[in-house]
């Protein structure tokens, strides 16, 4: 094969896409049927976090609150306005919506971490 007949990057991409699309269009009907069944099974599944995840998320938030309060009460100086503002800021960070949403994702990240370490 001469070098000038080699396709460029976009041609490689386009040809591969065309061929791969063809294999999808020509999928074995038995496979297509199994995929449809798999989809229906998935759609019938009950969504939601498992109970332990709710517990873990709640425990993480509670621990963070307890840690913040502990550090605050152990301050050697009397709490100034600045310290109070810091605590408010810390509490805000701990209890913010973003963090609650982060707790929602805990299971996903836990799973990802598990995948990374079990390899």
């Amino acid at each position: 094969m001469s070098a000038e007949l080699q396709p460029n990057d976009e041609q490689v991409k386009a040809r591969a896409k065309r061929l791969l699309d063809m294999t999808v269009a020509d999928l074995d009907p038995a496979v297509v049927h199994r995929l449809q069944r798999a989809r229906l099974t998935a759609l019938e599944a009950k969504p939601g976090r498992q109970l332990w995840m709710l517990f873990a998320g709640g425990a993480a938030v509670a621990l963070a609150v307890a840690l913040t309060l502990t550090l605050w009460t152990k301050q050697p100086q009397p709490p100034s306005e600045h310290h109070a503002a810091q605590v408010v800021e810390d509490m805000d960070l701990v209890l913010s919506t973003e963090n609650v949403e982060l707790a929602d994702d805990l299971e996903f990240y836990h799973w990802l971490a598990d995948v990374d370490t079990t390899g």
Binding site: V31, R34, L35, A38, R39, T41, A42, L43, A45, K46, P47, G48, R49, E107, F108
Partner: peptide, 14 residues
Amino acid sequence: MDLVQDSMLTLVKR
């Protein structure tokens, strides 16, 4: 098939 079904289930459930 198992991988796709498992992925679908995970997406729907979570």
